[in-house]
Amino acid sequence: MIHLWTALALVVIAGALIVIRSFRPAPLPAPEPWTGPLPAASPPAGMALYQLPTGTYENRAALAYRGGSFGDLRKFAATAVLVRHPAGDLLIDAGFGADVEAHIATMPSYRRSPHDLGATVRDQLRDRNYDPARLRGVVITHAHWDHVSGLAELDVPIWMNAAESRYVERAKDASVFRDVARGHEIHHYTFDGPPYLGFPASHDVHGDGSVVIAEAGGHTDGSVVVFVTLPGGGRFAFIGDLTWQCEGVTLRAERPKLLRMLADVEPSQVRDGLLRVIALSGRMHVVPAHDVHAYDPIPEWTAGSYSGV
């Protein structure tokens, strides 16, 4: 008979080996590339995108995707995106706010990362004399702290679907959202549109196909992908945290199993969403929320770059 302590040691060793293996490269099966037509869109003249970086935090590539190096210490983006549209502008996520130190302090110690705070979205809008009446609200890809911290300084509606509303009522990881959303109007949108590029349902914000929110639960209950089509045909997919870095798409590398268990409410749904995005990546520019280089094709909002519509 195996001694109890020997059995426990074997269990611990086996668990450690499983964890170690989960960090090794293991590309997902390659999905068939999307070869069908892309959904019709009629983006109006004057529509544009701008990135509003609000800061970064540090993390290891090995913790972001399978096959990443523990020696690769990266800056993870906390960037909002301004979608300018004649019918009213939207922000995608809100980045870091002025109280980000307090928001990070709400996290367990093992999840607190060194970070750099830049100008908040509110300050960037104000410094460029942006008319706040143009802003219809903030579409959050999901309600985790590093996507919503900046909401505290923005007096605009928060766009949220029913599944994410349920998530923020119960989830510990939504405590920062519950704090910063206090007093905000919540704009409840529904997925009243058809399946969109493989995702099960959609919401066309302006009715012209230029900004479409697609249901992509799994990271949180109501996490979404926001598809944007610009005049001239450029297309973007803002995928939130389906993957944290571009290698999730280019290498078909999901998060290590331990991180999937910690980060995702339904890892299998995240995998399905990631595979859909991989299939689309040859047809549009995919933007994982925390990859600083994914924002490179999107101009920063500098003096003189925004003239209004």
Rank of each mutant, 00 (worst) to 15 (best):
W5P: 04
W5I: 15
V12W: 14
V19M: 08
I20D: 13
P27L: 09
W34I: 05
A64F: 06
R74P: 06
A80I: 02
V83M: 13
D99F: 00
A102I: 02
T106F: 03
M107K: 00
T120D: 04
Q124H: 06
R126Q: 13
N129P: 05
A133Q: 12
V138K: 01
V139G: 00
T141W: 07
W145R: 01
V148N: 03
V148G: 01
G150I: 01
L154P: 00
V156M: 03
V156Q: 04
V156N: 01
A163K: 15
Y167Q: 02
Y167V: 12
E169G: 14
A171D: 03
A174G: 10
S175E: 11
F177G: 01
V180R: 01
H184D: 05
E185Y: 03
T190Q: 10
T190E: 10
D192E: 10
G193M: 05
F199D: 02
P200V: 10
A201E: 05
G207F: 13
E215I: 02
A216S: 14
T220F: 15
V225L: 05
V225H: 01
V226Y: 02
F238W: 08
I239T: 08
D241E: 14
R252Q: 04
P256G: 04
L259Q: 11
R260F: 06
S268K: 15
V277M: 15
A279R: 04
A289S: 15
H290M: 14
H293S: 15
H293D: 15
I298F: 09
I298K: 06
P299D: 03
T302W: 07
G304E: 04
G308P: 01
